[in-house]
Amino acid sequence: MTYVDGNALAGPLREIFAVDLTAASGQCVACGQTGPVAALRVYTSAPGLVARCPGCDEVVLRLVRGPSGAWLDLRGCVSLQIPL
């Protein structure tokens, strides 16, 4: 299946957060790899956006936008370091 990269999350995440999160650095729960959100592998053919770790392919983040709200699932992310 084809994917794009985490840069594609910039618009959907900026709809929720006041700062850009694609430049934030996150750590994967599964393998511990650290890298920018922009480097995640994003699959867009699901009902929402599914971002996987480029190191181990585990799900790091899921985002679904409905008509009246958004669901953000950060289950695969230990923490995010956000440049401010």
């Binding site: 985490g6 840069n7 910039a10 618009g11 900026r14 709809e15 850009d20 694609t22 959100v37 922009a38």
Partner: peptide, 9 residues
């Protein structure tokens, strides 16, 4: 149109 977005690339 909405943006600009993206702060890494």
């Amino acid at each position: 149109l909405r943006g600009p977005v993206g702060g890494w690339f």
